[in-house]
Amino acid sequence: MPYWLHVTIIILIIYVIISIAIYYLQDYLLFKPEKLPEDFQFYYENQDIEEHNLETRDGAVINGILFKPKGKSKGIVLYLKGNSKSIKGWGKFAVDFTRHNYNVLMVDYRGFGKSTGRRSQKAIKRDLQEVYNKIKEHTSEDRIILYGRSLGSGFAAKLASMNYPKMLILDAPYYSLTKVTARYAPFMPLSVLIKYPLPTYKWLKYVQCPIHIIHGTNDTLIPYKTSIKLSQVKPKLTKLHSVIGGGHKNLNNFESYHKMIHEILNRIPEEIDLSTTSIHVNHVSKKTKTKA
């Protein structure tokens, strides 16, 4: 056997082994769940909470916590968290919305916290739609805000594309999860291997509500340019909020982030009479005559 053919066969074998490993190990690489015992008691200082369980049609249980504001509720934020821990730790971020008199519902995906069931992209999308439907039994959609953080941004975009919430807020979103993983395995056939492609950009095309995208300019996990691309999918409905110097996990440490949340939740949209602006004014430079 020629040497070049021997080397080629070895490379192909290694390539196939790596592909198989990526396919079967991606759940362990993508999800970092924290599991909680059934009798675990949630507690957050100065927060009024209610624990809820939703049994899905395939017998799984989706566990969630409803955080209540001290004043009269303006609506509800369905907060879809990232890929790690459980709502035990994520619950501390609910105060960023309850302080504006919004209820906040946080749920754990399958296999996280007290939630059960076999995890898949299809199952999680179905679970979240069932959660959304339950919310609609208690309030109208014009009072529902979808907030997706990192991994949750894709699921939030999908929910918004299938429903009519008041608004969609994406925090450190990705263009698609396939694009994110391609940075670490550029030569692998990820479009075939990835079980959680989560094509946020595709789902955003069908969103009809206002879209707010928040991203840190120093995010090294999901680059800031990702949100620039996403903001161009539905530009008339989208506003991009940049947290200067913000990373992927520390936006809540920036005063500018909290000012953005305040503006997003409390500002009343105003129609602008474009006929009174310079939108149609062209800057034309005078041509200089050249001597013959």
Rank of each mutant, 00 (worst) to 15 (best):
I222D: 05
S115D: 02
I10N: 08
E45R: 13
A156I: 09
D39F: 04
L36H: 08
S140E: 09
R126K: 15
K68N: 11
I22V: 15
D27W: 09
S73F: 03
G113E: 00
Y23T: 07
L151S: 06
G71W: 02
R118L: 12
L5V: 12
G117T: 01
G152Y: 09
L54V: 01
E130T: 12
T276F: 01
V284I: 11
T220C: 06
E263K: 15
Q129H: 14
L230C: 03
N266C: 00
R119I: 06
N253A: 08
M106I: 11
K259R: 14
P269A: 08
G113A: 02
G216I: 13
V243H: 07
D58M: 08
S285W: 06
Y43N: 12
W203V: 02
P2W: 03
L190H: 01
G59R: 04
L12V: 13
G246C: 05
G154Q: 01
L170D: 02
M167N: 03
P197G: 05
V284S: 04
L151Q: 11
S191Q: 07
W90I: 00
A172N: 13
I13C: 11
K249W: 05
Q129V: 04
E51T: 15
S140N: 15
S140A: 06
Y196W: 14
Y224L: 07
A160E: 01
L29T: 03
E130L: 14
Q232C: 04
P33D: 12
Y196T: 01
T56S: 09
Q208V: 09
I20R: 11
T220E: 10
M106V: 10
G59H: 05
V95K: 05
L159W: 01
E34N: 13
T200M: 10
E51R: 14
K70Y: 05
N282V: 08
K229C: 03
E38A: 14
S153G: 09
T226V: 10
D27N: 15
N163A: 07
T8P: 03
L66T: 13
H6A: 09
L30H: 05
K205M: 11
I10L: 15
S231I: 05
G71F: 06
K234E: 14
N163E: 08
P33W: 00
I261N: 01
Y132N: 01
Q47N: 12
T217L: 04
G246N: 07
G154E: 05
L146P: 04
P33M: 08
D219L: 07
V207S: 06
K289M: 05
G245W: 08
T288M: 00
S191F: 10
D48Y: 11
E38V: 05
A157D: 10
T226G: 07
F187S: 11
P173A: 08
R119P: 00
K125H: 05
D27I: 03
